[in-house]
Design a protein around this nucleic acid. Sequence first.
RNA 1: GGCGGAGUAGCUCAGUUGGUUAGAGCACCGGCUUCAUAAGCCGGGUGUCACCGGUUCAAGUCCGGUCUCCGCUACCA
Length: 685
Amino acid sequence: MNTQKSNPRRLLVTSALPYANGPIHIGHLVEYIQTDIWVRYQKLIGNRCVYVCADDTHGTAIMIRARKEGRTEEELIAQMSQSHQADFAGFDIKFDNYGSTHSDENRQLCHQIWASMRQAGLIAERPVAQLYDPEAKTFLADRFVRGTCPNCGRADQPGDNCGACGATYSPIDLIDPKSTLSGATPIVKEALHLFVELEKLHDFLAQWIESGNALQAETANYLKGQFLAKDLRDWDVSRPAPYFGFEIPDAPGNYWYVWFDAPIGYIASTLQWCNANGEKLADWWQSDECEVHHFIGKDITYFHTLFWPGMLKTAGFSLPTKVHIHGFLNVGGEKMSKSTGTLVAAETYLKHADPSFLRYFYATKLTARIEDLDLGPEEFVDKINSDLIGKVVNLASRVGKFASGTGLSETYPDDGGLFANAAAAGDEISQAYETGDYSRAMRRIMELADAANPYVEHARPWDLKKDPDKIDQLRDVCTVALNLFRQLSIYLAPVLPRLADQCGELLGDPIVDWQQSQSPLLGTPVNAFKRMMDRVQIEDLHKMIEDSRVEAAETPSTPAPVWNDSDQPLKAEPLAAEISIDDFAKVDLRIARIIAAEHVPEANKLLKLTLSLGGDERRQVFAGIKAAYQPEALVGRLVVMVANLAPRKMRFGLSEGMVTAAGPGGVEVFLLGVDEGGQPGQRVH
RNA sequence: GGCGGAGUAGCUCAGUUGGUUAGAGCACCGGCUUCAUAAGCCGGGUGUCACCGGUUCAAGUCCGGUCUCCGCUACCA
């Protein structure tokens, strides 16, 4: 591995563009920290490296949110961009340029790339039927529609698939669809859409994926099996007005889908940087001399490995040299969630812990593979306290006070080969950074730190200090310990830039080059030692999670549907006369599980249900819900029943209770459900 | 169901092309030390290397099969 940069590489590096619809959280940070470490490493070894990013600002979600908050999209995205950049800065993530997809540069590049694609004959047009909200006056993406599943009859399901039976469908197939924006019933409306005929690039993409080393083998394999094995589908890249984005120049009234202009934002952000620094875009995006590296999460693999290369190829830009794909973050072994508070906002983290800790922790977890990583609070605390505090910082701390009196020796003393050994490990550590195997790099560095502390122990500087005749020996011990510390700080500099700065300050020699790790610093004074890091407590993390949970509870968890419920239901059935608590107590409501449900052939409204109250307790109940529910879809569900209602003999049999439901009747009947955890037989109080 | 990954000490993991008695860190126990941020040093491991079978002088490592866990995917971009 050549760390002597007589011939530096030119690198253009990106992280995925964060969407301007929410704050940065610790899950996002995996990627930005991963990228920032790589960039800092490249700069440290002397490569020419430019790191660009931008806010991803377009799309329906932004439009809806701005509308809801009563401000313009531009105001919303400006504020978001500011907040994102503050979050990144708080974690020492340092971009060379941070732009926006809503920029002149991006518009210009979108036009250019689009023209190339038109010219290449890749664009087709055809009508698409989509649900349209006549009140909000907008077409509805799948997630803005809810309705009854056409397969199982379960009410209030998302627009693309059923949460109950798992069926997938088009929102157009939903029974009784409702817009989550206005509550209105959407209508089906046709609009012209523009498509990229990706299949025309099939051979090129297959060859690119196969041949290069731009992708990990597992990703190439995934793409081959999942997409390239059959014809590539046309990619719908337009959205009809209204849409917050760029209008397509040769298709008035249509806008580019956010995923068209988002990756172009990489180039646009680079262009901004070029303009500000007197550079030429072509040197970075149209030159074989420049490598392009994308860091992304596994969820957006296919945008970056199919569409994006296709766009770049068609428009004559460089293809990605490498797409670095990482997995998701879990917390405590589980998916992050707002309700448990594990989805911690960057801002919230910073109130409770040092950003360097998260950077280091992620570094110990990251490899070149697409694996999810887990943040366990105990493991986090252990790693930080024993590695960073106990091994690395402590090394400086235990001789710092002596050293400011002695300074560093003129020649490097005998240290039993510690420095030379650690210097020799530089290439291996360097290689681990280069390949994205930070976990390996951290492990090697900690091995070096492990070897350094016994040296101090055996040299006993505290004894040497007591004897004025042994000042030279004391200086030598300090020289060794601080040089070993400095070596560690250099190796850790990509991960812990603050520690590198502190080390540079202590020794009066800034860390700016990986090569500094190869020779000791000698004959210089040592500044007064300043505390470098504080231990982290498990309570800090618990508080962080608790804060996060409270925040989530205060703000609506979903992108806030508009609650403009009609007053009709209440008018149709006014409130009943007041009753006492005792009156209410007479009604024994119980949770029951539907263990069987069948049609009653002679009845036109009834279903015959068998309810379980747990154990062997069974009730047969006839319920007038036939028009609203398929029997098969009911089996297994928990419902609320009136359990002490006098049995009533009906034409079809005895009904031993009543299942509670709301709604005017007919198809409009809605069974009362029970939240997770409720058990048959429990009383409703 | 398909594709991919993983299973090694209580926990997190390392184990290069098969080669001594399978390792590290943390945790835990004992001793020492006191420069340092209740930091440090020394010592302490009976682990069916998930299971079964095979190849081999030799298998954590190679081959076949089984089980478990995870991720992606299931005609959606």
